[in-house]
């Protein structure tokens, strides 16, 4: 299962890098971090093109959930902007 180990390690490193990078730029909203994690998840999943169809389906499900969260963040921001807050 080396390919699974490598996928989880790469994802963990990407998340740590995003956290360190955004913290260095003093980003102070949880939504910003979440958006970065979602993008990293989608990109790393796409790069691991050799996964079995079963693993790919499972990861797609996680990606859809994360993307759903990202869309909620976007909708809340749009509502904030339209209501003038």
């Amino acid at each position: 299962m080396r390919v699974y180990n490598s996928f989880i390690t790469v994802l963990a490193l990407a998340f740590a890098g995003i956290t360190a990078g955004l913290a260095a730029y003093q980003v102070d909203s949880l939504e910003g971090y979440f958006t970065g994690y979602t993008l990293a998840l989608l990109v790393v999943t796409t790069l691991y093109a050799t996964f079995s169809p079963r693993a790919r389906r499972a990861l797609t499900l996680v990606g859809v959930v994360a993307f759903g969260g990202f869309m909620v963040v976007v909708v809340l921001k749009v509502v904030d902007i339209l209501s003038g807050r």
Partner: peptide, 13 residues
């Protein structure tokens, strides 16, 4: 926020 975000990333992982 950065530490909370790190904890959030462990949920995704």
């Amino acid at each position: 926020v950065p530490l909370a975000a790190l904890a959030l990333s462990t949920i995704i992982l």
